[in-house]
Write a protein that binds this DNA or RNA. Structure first.
Lengths: 350, 350
DNA sequence: GTGAAAGCGCTAACAC
DNA sequence: GTGTTAGCGCTTTCAC
């Protein structure tokens, strides 16, 4: 059953049916009713594929994400799909597993797809090929919006968080508690958040005249397993830190597993502040101090930025659209894990 | 740049280009090389929309899920997308938020979409409209596979878990610890898991000659908030239970929040066994005994069932395909929260 | 082994 | 306000 069948049955032309379907004004009310009636009767739904081909556009948005397991992702996805359904967009999901190769392949296959827009949490901020491919999408009139992770030297719209500031506050909070030996489990240096959170960490130390100890900077790659090893390395140092700033969700879980397996208690044995809240912990005895961000809202916002691009495109690029890069503020949720136990024992500094 | 441009530049006809693209044997090796060369040079990607329209089929799979927040979902999604990328399928995501209305609207919009297959965790097992719409998809040659939740009287393929058995074991484990006053926070009775887990609960009690107390069956609707209220109701009973079986992830979190807010400790104040493991808890002091299932594998399996349908369709339905309904086994992970503290105090039975 | 041409189901310019 | 018709970019049958 296609538009011709409907036209025939309604005694009109396919063009008129099309007009009715698309809400075109130039249809007599009576004709419209008749057409709608036939449509109902036949339970007809116009093929969006045919429509897309004809108008050269679709309502499909691609969302490329590195780690489907990370709760940050599922929360942000919620924001994205909620907003998308407002606009009747469909969201395609792709996981890169933090693998640039895979990312390239996905981008390659997307060239064929006639998507309306692209949301991506890129694996790396310095990957030339990804940057190049994304630029090509923009050239082809397909807006790209970055999420969480930036791409160096690019001018895509994006929604990020104030990673430096967030990390700074986290570490400063530890310093204020009396900690001097503060370590960081960092993320991949090739991702903006990975890089910037180390930056914030260093800034906090420096601004408090605490020398930076490179032994205290260990890469957890934003992965649970790696972070487990990272904190292990730290704790086995001759002079282990009294506090750890864990720069990501997965990182934090790795730390917690290490602590648990080694019978260590927060505060008592080590202080810990994490980046990104972990909802489930709220139900437990682990009162983790974290840098929180409005993750769900970030998802909504990223869709709004995309929408804005679509709008401007439609309006014919009247004025050159300005790049919009939104940095959401983080906030510190103090729950106690930042406390310095040995402080009371007059054990400050080495 | 389309197939005609490539054809012209390669000095062949569009048909030949099409043959090359689709790996048709009937192309001289030399021609094929030439065409591929031109394709590379122009960075050309054939429009999948045009292709889909032409062949009347796509590689898109729709995945409809009720609760994007539930970790069960993100784990299963991982299995689905992993498997999907093996077959080069794209996965569309839709969230119903446990709302049948929304589910119907999504299904309606999907009629227009030319999808290859449909995976759904239906909101309700008795919703006539959803059942009807799904049946229509099958009639239209679009295979439907159910996940986790069944649809009454339907004969769709599906991947489920042995909910009755799982619940039975959970409750029996509590009984074996000495509990007699065992409550359940149930899910919506309109969903199979919701219904069956109560079933298993009742069976366990009955088979141990423990009378069923309707006051001990409280509906948490698989929602955190509702479950918080549910356990509150339970604990405020004149004769509160000594153990609770929480029939779902979200339900469990609701319970835990209640316990935390009221300063109650597992085992000491109440015993608890949950359905579905919660990864994050492994890093904490909450040693929750749970009914676990192979969630990731369920995702992969559901894609495999879909694939099987596609294959049989292609082979022309040689023999009528038998419905495949896979029930994955659950297993109990005992971590201690099932223990009956008062047992030692000789406080068995009322 | 290769090409011409019709067709997939819709849209939009143009004519009336 | 409505119809005719030529695309959109691919696939596929049928000739050769």
């Amino acid at each position: 059953m296609n538009i011709y069948d409907i036209a025939k049955e309604a005694g009109v032309s396919p063009a008129t049916v099309s007009r009715v379907i698309n809400g075109n004004k130039n249809v007599r009310e009576e004709t419209r009713r008749k057409v709608l009636e036939v449509i109902k009767e036949n339970n007809y739904a116009p093929s969006s594929v045919a429509r897309n081909l004809s108008i050269g556009e679709s309502q499909n948005i691609a969302f490329i994400v590195p780690d489907v397991e990370n709760p940050f992702f599922s929360k942000v996805l919620q924001g994205i799909t909620d907003k998308a359904s407002e606009f009747n967009y469909n969201v395609f999901m792709f996981g890169t597993k933090e693998d640039s190769e895979r990312e390239h392949r996905i981008l390659e296959s997307l060239k064929a797809e006639l998507i309306k827009g692209l949301i991506i949490i890129p694996v790396s901020e310095i990957d030339k090929e990804t940057a190049f491919r994304l630029k090509n999408f923009e050239k082809a009139g397909i807006p790209v919006v970055l999420l969480d992770r930036d791409i160096k030297g690019s001018s895509f719209d994006g929604v990020f968080s104030e990673d430096i500031q967030g990390a700074f506050e986290a570490v400063e909070c530890l310093i204020n508690e009396g900690h001097r030996k503060i370590a960081i489990i960092s993320g991949p240096d090739t991702s903006r958040p990975g890089h910037d959170r180390v930056e914030g960490y260093k800034m906090a130390l420096t601004s408090h005249q605490i020398p930076i100890n490179e032994d205290y900077i260990v890469n957890g790659k934003f992965l649970e397993e790696e972070s487990y090893n990272a904190i292990k390395t730290l704790m086995e140092l001759e002079d282990p830190p009294t506090a750890v700033f864990s720069s990501n969700n997965m990182t934090t879980l790795g730390c917690l597993r290490y602590l648990k397996e080694n019978g260590m208690k927060l505060v008592e044995d080590i202080s810990l502040v994490g980046f990104d809240d972990i909802k489930e912990l709220e139900y437990t005895d682990i009162n983790l101090t974290v840098v929180a961000r409005p993750v769900y809202e970030m998802g909504k916002e990223v869709m709004e930025l995309l929408e804005r691009r679509f709008r401007y495109k439609q309006e014919g690029d009247k004025q050159k659209v300005v790049t919009r890069r939104n940095y959401v503020k983080t906030w510190l949720i103090k729950r106690g894990s930042e406390k310095y136990k040995k402080f009371q024992e007059g054990n400050i500094n080495e």
